[in-house]
Design a protein around this nucleic acid. Structure first.
Length: 454
RNA sequence: GUGAUUGUAGCUCAGUCGGUUAGAGCGCCGGAUUGUGGUUCCGGAGGUCGCGGGUUCGAGCCCCGUCUUUCACCCCA
């Protein structure tokens, strides 16, 4: 028989990993709830018409398509087959796996527009799928934890996103840097250097600045048809890197003052920072990064990206403001802003930096070990009482060698065992062993209860 | 999608120039101990060498294909 395997880019999560993953999920959910977001889940699959065209050309290629049920090839002609996979796909696949949580959310909002309290705040923690090649920090199935608010363009929401990011990573113990930018500033740059409307091309290139350096960025732009004059006008961009935030904003205003779009973007950024300060978060590690672009084409205002310090892994969180996401579903003019936490990358970061707290998600607290049937009749009532009191407790189900049962407790890192044999049954004093220290004492069942419910 | 890289016991890995019956450590199972784990000692089980084809008297080792792992590019959480 062939050994079973997993599809490329997918993983199982064993009990140990799940304890740590649940710690991350719980931490994020805790923050989302306290900021007033409500839970939402959407199906794993959506109609392809909902998904395509939202993530750019690259994104469409990374969508997992689901073959139609039944005879998906019925009615296909030789001509269809000859026309190539791109044209063939819509006729044999009408559903796909979700690529992110934002687009399904937009679809949900549009479908339920009359019943949602506006502004509507929802959080969503579910897996998403992307058909790209796995590598470090990149999987084909991974979880995102999103919080979005739609129905308001208040910059208070941007500020609260910053607060949530700080809350989450502070609670997880991750040292992070929050990079912010604004699409309006990017658009303004494009205007000022004389290539209005081309901020997408510009972004893709300058986004790589810290990776490939200034010269190569300029080479790439030149290849894409940017003139030398344009590139000269762009040069102030490369001077921002190490300046403090307020000075950067001043210089930006000088450079981009001619563009109204840029002025608005700068003002938005300024107000957001100011509001964060009013919330009392003065020391957030925020960095303005004019090269931060982010691929998703639907962002229109603020853009966020979080990097963990001390590890080389992609961003562990990202988000931004979008003004017209619901427009493609026939509901224009609804503005929203959101943030997405990448659980799997956060896990990798915490694993690499050894940030998981030691006792996180402790499993069974105590194992009862009865030696015979009579002892079992003493163990079971105690077991129920322990569970009643909220103690995670179990009994070894087979009557077997003590060694084997102790091994089991060891393997599961259960800190206490209660040994019950004929002697314990007679005296009513149970043998309680601390598996960490090896210390063993005799006590009544009531004493066991109070020991473990402390 | 492009370019590399990996695969041998449950895990981590040896395996010489292509040569007879593929090894180690850890883990697992049993015993030393019919009421005591994590230490010790003794014994044991466990392999389609990723899969398929080819070269050869002979392949874990060489060649081709394929899958998988990891990494970079593109892009992204």
């Amino acid at each position: 028989m062939q050994k079973p395997t997993l599809p490329k880019g997918t993983r199982d999560f064993g009990p140990e990993q799940m304890r740590n993953r649940l710690f991350i999920f719980d931490t994020i959910r805790h923050t989302f709830k306290r900021f007033g977001f409500q839970p939402l889940e959407t199906p794993s699959m959506e109609n392809l018409s909902t998904l395509t065209g939202k993530y750019g050309n690259e994104g469409d290629q990374l969508l997992y398509k689901i073959l139609n049920s039944g005879d998906y090839a019925a009615g296909l002609t030789e001509l269809d087959l000859a026309s190539g996979s791109k044209k063939l796909t819509p006729s044999i696949a009408e559903k796909g796996l979700r690529y992110d949580l934002t687009v399904p959310f937009a679809r949900y909002v549009v479908m339920n527009r009359n019943n949602l309290p506006m502004p509507f705040k929802r959080y969503q923690m579910q897996p998403v799928w992307r058909a790209d090649r796995p590598q470090k920090g990149r999987y084909r199935e991974f979880y995102q934890c999103d919080a979005d608010v739609v129905g308001t363009d208040s910059l208070l929401c941007e500020a609260e996103i910053v607060l949530m990011i700080d809350d989450v990573f502070r609670n997880l113990g991750i040292d992070y840097t929050l990079k912010v930018n604004n699409r309006k500033i990017l658009a303004g740059i494009a205007e000022v250097i004389g290539v209005p409307g081309q901020e997408a091309t510009l972004s893709v290139a300058i986004d790589k600045l810290d990776k490939i350096g200034r010269d190569k960025v300029q080479d790439e732009l030149r290849e894409r048809g940017f003139s030398d004059e344009t590139l000269t006008k762009l040069s102030p961009l490369f001077a921002f890197s190490e300046l403090p935030l307020d000075q950067v904003l001043v210089q930006l205003t000088t450079w981009l003052g001619a563009s109204e779009t840029a002025r608005i973007g700068i003002a938005e950024l300024q107000e957001m920072i100011q509001l964060v300060g009013q919330y009392g978060l003065a020391d957030a590690p925020i960095e303005f990064d004019p090269t931060l672009a982010r691929g998703l084409s639907y962002y229109t205002g603020a853009i966020f990206e979080v990097k963990a310090r001390g590890v080389s892994i992609g961003s562990i969180s990202g988000g931004g403001r979008y003004d017209n996401l619901t427009g493609t579903f026939g509901m224009p003019g609804l503005s929203g802003v959101g943030i997405s936490f990448g659980v799997d990358r956060i896990y990798d970061v915490m694993e690499e930096l050894k940030l998981f707290p030691a006792g996180v998600g402790q499993g069974t607290q105590v194992l009862l070990i009865p030696f015979d049937l009579e002892a079992r009749s003493v163990a079971l009532p105690l077991l129920s009482q322990l569970r009643e009191s909220g103690v995670a407790a179990e009994v070894y189900p087979d009557l077997t060698k003590v060694k084997k049962m102790m091994d089991y407790a060891n393997a599961k890192a259960i800190p206490y065992v209660v040994l019950i044999g004929s002697e314990e049954v007679q005296t009513g004093l149970l043998s309680v062993k601390n598996m960490v220290t090896g210390e063993q004492t005799k006590m009544t069942a009531d004493a066991v209860l109070s020991l473990l419910t402390l």
